[in-house]
Design a protein around this nucleic acid. Structure first.
Lengths: 121, 121
DNA sequence: CATAATACATACTTTAGGGTAAGTACTTGT
DNA sequence: ACAAGTACTTACCCTAAAGTATGTATTATG
């Protein structure tokens, strides 16, 4: 899963930022290109892997599972696989993932205010 | 300011995500390693360049001005330079930058809940 | 005369993340 | 016999962002 070099300055700084800054902690979790979009699609209910794929046509399969795996490892989404063939796998938000929704809302609200020029005085 | 290649898939996808996803829009603005930390330090009042530098020892000068310039270009911080020698430059949050504070708060709140294990059920 | 302090700038290198393309295992339908 | 659908995996490439190192202009101060 994309090996990282143990002793780069960039990793040390990430550590620094993760400890010093809760915002960086959050961004570590939802900072991938597709993660917010995935979370958004899961916010309306659980989805199969292939449903997500169809819902986000621009994402490649590699990116999709990679991010899903990371979200799962971070405890934001829960994967459930039925042992059938063809496979039947669903993803849904965990409690932690659901807890992120207010953050997402705050971000969206700011973004729309920006686009509406609310802050131009 | 770090020239970007016009026609890479990564840029196309960024465009897609920026239009489709307000969260990605926000992350474009505050997604650098040091941007949240800079914003945090400015949230308590305006600061000189050298004050920021001392407040965030781990950041290099290149990263610091690079992010400050981007934040300024995005309208989140305001730069004020007094025409004296040695230079006297202060940075402070704009209205838009101040508008981000609730987002920051929501993120921080979630991060602390995560660390306190609130979501472990 | 040389050093310090301020607020940057700029050339070059490294790395994490994103993207491409192709393959896997298993079953059902034609 | 072969394609199609499911949910992935793996090897390789490319780029944007981060980091390193050094240089700039101006004035005050020892």
């Amino acid at each position: 899963m994309t090996a990282i070099k143990e002793s780069s300055t960039i990793q040390e700084n990430k550590q620094y930022a993760l400890e010093k800054c809760p915002v960086t902690f959050v961004m570590e979790k939802i900072g991938g290109y597709w993660k917010p979009i995935i979370l958004y699609h899961l916010s309306t209910g659980d989805k199969r892997y292939s449903e997500l794929k169809r819902a986000i046509p621009a994402v490649t399969e590699k990116m999709l599972i990679q991010h899903l795996k990371q979200l799962e490892a971070d405890g934001l989404v829960i994967r459930e696989a039925k042992p059938v063939v063809p496979p039947f796998v669903t993803y849904r938000l965990s409690n932690a993932g659901t807890g992120l929704l207010p953050v997402i809302d705050a971000m969206a609200s700011w973004a729309f205010k920006m686009k509406d020029g609310v802050y131009n005085i």
